[in-house]
């Protein structure tokens, strides 16, 4: 996200990949386990306009620190040493720009392998580099993504080349979009001064919780107790935590207040944004007695406005 804010990226919707891409690279991403149908629907075996034979029309490369289950669907596996992505991308950018460094191995990869890979990228009708949490969650974080986007831009001088992140939760892209159009920023926003401020190191959830700053928490459709580092999540047990969730989770266990809601995409309709930013309307297949989550949120908003205006009245009374 920060990398996108800082530099942008060459991207496209996944149908472009299906229709035109003949080179697919999964870098630090293991779709076979994390996005099981990505390969068949969009990137690997999908048939499209210039790929009438699907898988046969594509070369698939997996770059990862270990032989993941995705490797067996690839044509080529390149093993990289953990934490070396930035270095490798830097060297690949050098190679792309015609500078061959004087070394045999980079990040555990033979230099010749990288030269061949860059050559493939240059010659592709459309090359696509999908990168996953294996990259964004190692040290270096957004510097890694920045290097990837920069590599994509460099490649655009030679071929059609896309760099696309493999996003996790089904509507994490929607949450970034909504926050962006209402606040200007896609995450880590603070309204403490009455307007949106953005500072990832300061206002992102883990940092806030580690500093034990929040005095009340509202958790909407998330599992921080399970997913956040324990040292951060622990703070939620010490403050009143309000949880809106259709189902019991480790987080509802520690909640002070539980507000049941319909399950989006299961018991109620709603919009979600795919990893390539295409919004799709979800259906409801089950019935639930509870309201959709925006309804209790609206009630809370209206209640707080009322409490505030009553307080103002009594304050005003005192002053007079």
């Amino acid at each position: 996200m920060v990398a996108l804010q800082l530099g942008g990226a060459p991207a496209a919707t996944l149908g472009e990949v299906k229709n035109r891409a003949d080179l697919i690279i999964f870098w630090g991403s293991n779709p076979a386990e994390s996005h099981p149908r990505h390969f068949t629907r969009y990137s690997g075996t999908a048939k499209g306009r210039m790929n009438p034979n699907g898988r046969k029309d594509r070369h698939v490369v997996v770059v990862d620190i270990r032989k993941t289950p995705s490797v067996k669907y690839s044509d080529e596996f390149i093993q990289i040493k953990p934490g070396n992505d930035y270095e490798v991308f830097t060297v690949m950018r050098m190679i792309a720009n015609g500078h061959i460094p004087d070394t045999d191995m980079v990040g555990g990869i033979p230099l010749q392998t990288l030269i061949d890979l860059v050559e493939r990228c240059k010659k592709a009708r459309m090359g696509v580099l999908f990168f996953g949490q294996g990259i964004t969650e190692t040290k270096g974080k957004h510097q890694n993504s920045t290097a990837i986007y920069q590599f994509g831009k460099d490649m655009t001088k030679h071929s059609k080349f896309l760099t696309l992140p493999m996003r996790g939760h089904y509507n994490v892209v929607g949450s970034g979009n909504v926050m962006c159009w209402q606040t200007g920023y896609p995450f880590a926003v603070n309204f403490g001064k009455g307007y949106p401020r953005f500072n990832p190191g300061e206002f992102s959830v883990v940092d806030l919780l580690l500093r034990r700053e929040p005095d009340v928490a509202v958790i909407v459709a998330a599992e921080p107790i399970d997913h956040l580092p324990y040292a951060a999540a622990k703070h939620l047990e010490n403050i009143p935590t309000i949880v809106l969730d259709p189902r019991k989770t480790l987080t509802t266990k520690i909640a002070k207040v539980i507000i049941p809601v319909k399950h989006a995409g299961v018991s109620v309709e709603g919009t979600a944004y795919r990893m390539d930013h295409i919004p799709i309307k979800m259906q409801a297949v089950l019935e639930s007695p509870w309201p959709k989550d925006d309804i209790p949120l609206s009630t809370i908003i209206n209640r707080i406005k009322k409490i505030r205006s009553e307080e103002k009245k009594t304050d005003g009374g005192k002053a007079a």
Partner: peptide
């Protein structure tokens, strides 16, 4: 330009 975002839309 320093920053550049491109987003082709399928079909």
């Amino acid at each position: 330009g320093q920053k550049w975002y491109n987003g082709d839309v399928e079909c």
